[in-house]
Design a protein around this nucleic acid. Structure first.
Length: 901
RNA sequence: GGGAGCUUAGCUCAGCUGGUUCAGAGCAUCUGCCUUACAAGCAGAGGGUCACUGGUUCGAACCCAGUAGCUCCCA
């Protein structure tokens, strides 16, 4: 029999993953069992696996596998998200490489390229998940643009529009000039950026409230210059980080209480370079002590200015094109990109002598999450979804505890967001996605309908005077809906709950049990799923939301492609095995806390797999002699209790979603209790046979260990499960579908006493180390003061402490190496006597410690208020501590006096 | 600027309802071992003013207040 020295993950992983698939163990169909359901947070269809996915999906797989072992009907639904912006950007880039520009393609042509791309690259990430061992029901794989899922999106759009919750309006949106689309607030990442603050001088116009069309600005320039040159009272200075937007200015705003500017009330100023005249307006919105106290108001390019503009009835002058270049309204620098224009205008202003100074300035700038372009606040016609009414029930689910957020701390953030929810801009100026089902009539009116024919019907009602209207007269809205407008339906739509709301699957699997996702998308995905669940099914979509942390590197930086600090997950699996990586990911990842990823954790995981492998190797090598008696009943009983104890702890940890704790309990049970102690206790002498009872019991224990390990390390456990050591397995007898052992009896006495025995063994080993006699068999004498029956443990002691003899004594033994465990005294008589001085020192130190301990205990007990207030069991415990300490002190004092003789 | 959270061993984290001299785990470190399952291992050991300052209490890592530092969310 030739078993490799270490565990070799590679073949086992491929072999068993295909085997599981072949046997259909991941497959779930509704039956009489209790369901346990997870829907995957669908990764971007174009994405590749990163460390965040690894963590997230490892957790889901652990949960789903455990549910399976508990006999539940476990169903993990996988799939991908069409990710409008990200995917469209990739397709555009691909086309560009092929020399094709998006603008030269029709919508249909573009979409066929996009689908081609999706078929080719989409789903790579799902293949990668398989390497990790993800036990998803692959037959249920969905894509957010599958025909029926898209249909659900359109239907819900129509539904919400009918309710009056979807409307069209001009609003200031976050514009991504690179993606050329609006993005939601949640997709904007604010970062602090070093910028420049430009101080620009505006001249006050001579003409007071002369309403002019401003058509002949050149003459005005001459006039004004003549009039006000050199008079400080006739100029003002504003500070801005965006000088390229001065051409879009609609006013200058000052605080009405600002004494410095009283003389400017009612005046107008001229925008430098273009000399357009704008009014000076008064509003307390302006902070007097910030900058110069003069604020340029640019309604088209700043949200606050927009609101100020509305209030004061200012015109909105939009000088930017969709791609971030300046348009004709800017009058100068037309066609330049906004950032190029910023640099150039600074030069122009300087040349014109109106640039007073430039300061360094730090401020928050919004970036597009998808393209990383600087977000431009921009006015545009968009579709919005009202949130207020949907937010209320969604908040209640969480506040009432029907949906639990894990960890709980996220409830606060959730509450805040839901109470301050803003309408959701759901239109995106893209082609890849579900096209908005709005159809425009030639006169600009629109109807919302599922098909063009339905739209025509509605249109005819709307325009009775125009009976000749045909579908050709209708133009469908060009935009698609936000990707989240499809993914918020995910838990319902994967079970076909829209088209067929009463089907067997949705009735069985929905609401799902656990959702595992990142806190970043708590709002724009999780919260909206809860809203959708309530609105479209009147039910919550899941019961628990487990929020993982962000995977960071050792330096605490978020792992990202651009930083290059993220290891390739598949390389890690290649290096340490999938089981090793899974253990590594879980070792230090409490819910909601960021995970400082360190590859050494994976190494630890690999070592653990190897430890399991070697325990197997040991047992595998044993020969059974049927005639032998079982000498190991104590060890067998002890491990049984320890196992049940651990099982209970694991259960509790899972109930509280403490996955890393559950893993650690399992880890220690296997490594310490099973390998280091149990196997050492029962292990026969080299090349000696073992008795049948011990052998069979040990195999049973090992098999149970494989089951509890399985959620964490599925591959090695399945590999070992099928070894003939466990007998001939029936066809479907696999670890993945084994039954989790139930928690049995725990004999606390034996568990406690073995702890003492372990300490005793450690002490003997310490004597060996100290005396440099690693291999000699030693004689042990015991002076027992406790109730422990050491005779019962003699076999274990002989073996693990390597004893020559074990005898009892009523008297202290002078000159022997000695130690105390609990209140029992132990002596080992050695050839050379112990060092009396060192021994005295050791005992005195021990004595001092005990005196201190006793003093503290006595102080408590003598404190009347303690005795009066503390719970009785606490007081009893103090009394017990007192007697114990006194006994020990007595023993040590006797030992010291013995030394003196 | 507003809000939430965190700070415990070199690192990553437990520590539940305040109660054992309660300060714990894993990893790392140090010492000794290639002892027939495993050096990816075994046997031992060291390591901490629980961020700081006050308060409540018979008793505080834990509760309260303030301070400092860090992180996240919102503006």
């Amino acid at each position: 029999m030739n078993i490799s020295k270490t565990y070799q993950p590679k073949q086992a992983e491929d072999k068993w993953y295909s085997y599981w698939l072949e046997k259909g163990f991941f497959k779930s169909v509704p039956d009489e069992r209790e369901p346990y359901t997870i829907v995957i947070p669908p990764p971007n269809v174009t994405g590749v696996l990163h460390m965040g996915h690894m963590l997230n999906n490892t957790i889901q797989d652990v949960l789903i596998r455990r549910a399976r072992l508990k006999g539940k009907n476990a169903c993990w639904v996988p799939g991908t998200d069409h990710a409008s912006i990200a995917t469209e950007a990739k397709v555009v880039a691909m086309l560009k490489e092929r020399g094709i520009a998006k603008k030269d393609l029709s919508r249909d042509e573009f979409l066929s390229y996009a689908w081609e791309w999706k078929e080719k690259y989409g789903g790579i990430i799902l293949e990668q998940l398989k390497k990790l061992g993800a036990s998803c029901d692959w037959d249920r794989t969905r894509f957010t643009m599958d025909a029926d899922l898209s249909e659900a999106v359109i239907d819900t759009f129509i539904h919400l529009h009918k309710k009056g919750w979807i409307y069209r309006g001009i609003r200031m949106v976050n514009w991504d000039p690179q993606g050329k689309t609006a993005v939601s607030d949640e997709e904007v990442i604010r970062k602090e950026v070093n910028q420049k603050l430009y101080y620009i001088r505006y001249e006050v116009s001579s003409i007071k409230y002369q309403v002019s069309g401003n058509e002949n600005s050149e003459t005005q320039v001459l006039n004004t210059n003549d009039l006000i040159l050199g008079t400080n009272n006739n100029r003002l200075t504003i500070a801005t980080t965006r000088p390229e937007t001065i051409m879009a200015d609609a006013a200058i705003c000052i605080n009405p209480n600002d004494e410095r500017y009283f003389h400017l009330h009612g005046k107008k100023v001229l925008i430098p370079l273009i000399n357009r005249e704008i009014p000076i307006i008064l509003d307390e919105y302006v902070t007097m002590d910030f900058g110069t106290g003069c604020l340029k108001v640019t309604p088209a390019h700043d949200l606050n200015d927009y609101e100020l503009g509305i209030k004061h009835g200012l015109p909105i002058i939009d000088i930017l094109n969709d791609d971030g270049t300046l348009n004709d309204k800017a009058q100068i620098l037309v066609g330049e990109d906004r950032f190029a224009a910023r640099k150039k205008i600074a030069v122009l202003l300087d040349e014109a002598g109106v640039l007073e100074k430039v300061e360094e300035y730090k401020s928050q700038v919004g970036f597009s999450e998808r393209t990383n372009a600087v977000i431009e606040p921009k006015l545009s016609m968009q579709w919005f979804c009202k949130m207020e009414e949907m937010a209320k029930p969604a908040l209640d689910y969480v506040l009432k505890g029907d949906i639990k957020l894990i960890p709980e701390k996220f409830t606060n953030t959730y509450k805040y967001w839901m109470e301050n929810v803003k309408d959701w801009c759901i239109s995106r100026q893209l082609w890849w996605g579900q096209q908005i089902p709005a159809w425009y009539l030639p006169n600009g009116q629109y109807v919302i309908a599922k098909t063009v024919n339905e739209a025509l019907e509605l249109a005819k009602q709307l325009a009775p005077h125009n009976p000749q209207l045909t579908t050709l007269d209708l133009r469908q809205d060009e935009d698609v809906v936000d990707t989240w407008f499809s993914s918020w339906l995910w838990p319902i739509s994967v079970f076909n709950g829209f088209k067929d709301p009463d089907n067997v699957d949705i009735n069985y699997y929905y609401p799902t049990n656990d959702l595992v996702t990142a806190p970043e998308i708590l709002f724009f995905w999780v919260a909206r799923m809860i809203m959708a669940g309530h609105e479209f099914r009147g039910q919550l979509p899941f019961k628990n939301v487990y929020l993982t942390g962000i995977v960071r590197d050792k330096l605490g930086r978020k792992m990202s492609k651009s930083l290059g600090n993220s290891p390739d997950p598949l390389d890690l699996i290649d290096k340490h095995g999938a089981d090793g990586v899974r253990v590594g990911m879980l070792l230090s990842s409490p819910a909601g806390n960021d995970l400082m990823f360190d590859e050494s954790h994976c190494e630890q995981g690999r070592n653990f797999a190897n430890k399991i492998w070697n325990a197997f190797k040991l047992i595998k090598g044993w020969e059974v002699d049927e005639h032998l008696e079982n000498p190991n009943s104590v060890a067998i009983n002890w491990f049984n209790s320890r196992f049940n104890e651990a099982l209970q702890q694991i259960e509790e940890n899972f109930n509280q979603y403490r996955l890393s704790e559950a893993l650690m309990v399992t880890y220690k049970l296997v490594w310490d209790d099973f390998c280091a102690w149990y196997l050492e206790m029962i292990k026969p002498v080299y090349q000696q046979p073992i008795d049948k009872t011990t052998y069979e019991t040990t195999i049973k224990y090992f098999q149970n260990i494989l089951i509890i390990l399985h959620p964490f390390t599925p591959f090695i456990t399945e590999e070992l499960w099928h070894d003939e050591l466990f007998g001939i397995r029936a066809d479907n007898d696999c670890c993945i579908v084994a039954q989790l052992p139930t928690i049995g009896q725990i004999d606390t006495q034996i568990v406690g006493e073995i702890e003492v025995i372990k300490q005793l063994i450690t002490e003997v080993r310490n004597v060996r180390n100290a005396k440099q006699i690693p291999k000699d068999k030693l004689p042990l004498l015991m002076k027992v003061n406790s109730a422990i029956n050491y005779q019962q443990y003699s076999a274990i002691l002989f073996k693990l402490a390597n004893l020559e003899s074990m005898d009892f004594t009523d008297v202290k033994i002078a000159g022997a190496a000695n130690f105390i465990v609990g209140t029992d005294e132990f002596y080992i008589v050695l050839a050379d006597n112990i060092d009396v001085d060192a021994e005295r020192e050791r005992l005195n130190a021990e004595l001092a410690y005990l005196h201190g301990f006793l003093k503290a205990v006595n102080a408590k007990l003598q404190n009347e208020r303690f005795v009066a207030n503390a719970k009785p069991e606490i007081v009893d415990n103090e009394l017990k501590k007192k007697t114990d300490a006194e006994t020990k002190i007595k023993i040590i004092q006797e030992s010291l006096s013995l030394l003196a003789n």
